[in-house]
Protein backbone atom coordinates (compact mmCIF):
# COMPACT_ATOMS: atom_id res chain seq x y z
CA UNK A 1 0.00 0.00 0.00
CA UNK A 2 1.51 3.29 -0.99
CA UNK A 3 -1.48 5.56 -0.55
CA UNK A 4 -0.82 6.21 3.12
CA UNK A 5 -1.27 9.88 3.92
CA UNK A 6 0.52 12.23 6.24
CA UNK A 7 -1.03 14.84 8.50
CA UNK A 8 0.77 17.73 10.14
CA UNK A 9 0.00 19.45 13.44
CA UNK A 10 -0.39 23.10 12.52
CA UNK A 11 0.62 24.21 16.00
CA UNK A 12 3.96 22.48 16.34
CA UNK A 13 4.71 20.74 13.06
CA UNK A 14 4.49 17.15 14.31
CA UNK A 15 3.73 14.77 11.44
CA UNK A 16 1.38 11.80 11.73
CA UNK A 17 2.21 9.29 9.04
CA UNK A 18 -0.49 6.64 8.56
CA UNK A 19 2.16 4.16 7.48
CA UNK A 20 4.01 4.47 10.80
CA UNK A 21 1.17 5.13 13.23
CA UNK A 22 2.43 6.39 16.58
CA UNK A 23 3.83 3.66 18.74
CA UNK A 24 4.24 5.77 21.88
CA UNK A 25 0.56 6.64 22.02
CA UNK A 26 -0.60 3.17 21.00
CA UNK A 27 -1.53 3.84 17.37
CA UNK A 28 -0.54 0.83 15.25
CA UNK A 29 1.31 1.26 11.95
CA UNK A 30 -1.14 1.49 9.08
CA UNK A 31 -3.86 3.21 11.14
CA UNK A 32 -5.84 5.57 8.94
CA UNK A 33 -6.30 9.11 10.18
CA UNK A 34 -10.06 8.66 10.45
CA UNK A 35 -9.48 5.63 12.68
CA UNK A 36 -7.23 7.53 15.09
CA UNK A 37 -9.46 8.11 18.15
CA UNK A 38 -11.02 11.59 18.46
CA UNK A 39 -9.46 12.08 21.88
CA UNK A 40 -5.96 11.37 20.57
CA UNK A 41 -3.70 14.37 20.98
CA UNK A 42 -0.50 15.60 19.37
CA UNK A 43 2.28 13.71 21.19
CA UNK A 44 4.57 16.73 21.00
CA UNK A 45 2.44 19.72 21.90
CA UNK A 46 -0.76 18.20 23.25
CA UNK A 47 -3.31 19.88 20.98
CA UNK A 48 -6.32 17.98 19.63
CA UNK A 49 -6.61 15.99 16.42
CA UNK A 50 -8.60 18.84 14.85
CA UNK A 51 -5.42 20.95 14.69
CA UNK A 52 -3.94 18.59 12.08
CA UNK A 53 -4.21 19.16 8.36
CA UNK A 54 -3.52 16.87 5.43
CA UNK A 55 0.01 17.20 4.12
CA UNK A 56 0.22 17.04 0.36
Amino acid sequence: MSDYKKYVCEVCGHIYDEADGDEDTGIAPGTRWEDVPDDWRCPECGVEKSEYILLD
Binding site: V11, C12, R41, P43, C45, G46, V47
Partner: peptide, 20 residues
Protein backbone atom coordinates in the same frame (compact mmCIF):
# COMPACT_ATOMS: atom_id res chain seq x y z
CA UNK B 1 2.57 21.44 26.93
CA UNK B 2 3.37 25.12 26.86
CA UNK B 3 1.34 25.86 23.69
CA UNK B 4 -1.76 24.56 25.47
CA UNK B 5 -1.54 27.26 28.15
CA UNK B 6 -3.35 29.50 25.66
CA UNK B 7 -6.30 27.09 25.67
CA UNK B 8 -6.42 27.12 29.43
CA UNK B 9 -9.88 28.62 29.91
CA UNK B 10 -12.03 26.97 27.25
CA UNK B 11 -11.15 23.47 28.46
CA UNK B 12 -12.35 22.30 31.85
CA UNK B 13 -9.91 19.42 32.24
CA UNK B 14 -6.86 21.39 31.12
CA UNK B 15 -4.95 21.07 34.40
CA UNK B 16 -4.78 17.31 33.83
CA UNK B 17 -4.71 17.08 30.04
CA UNK B 18 -1.91 19.62 29.70
CA UNK B 19 0.51 17.15 31.30
CA UNK B 20 2.27 15.31 28.46
Amino acid sequence: SRPLLSRGFSKDDIEQTIIL
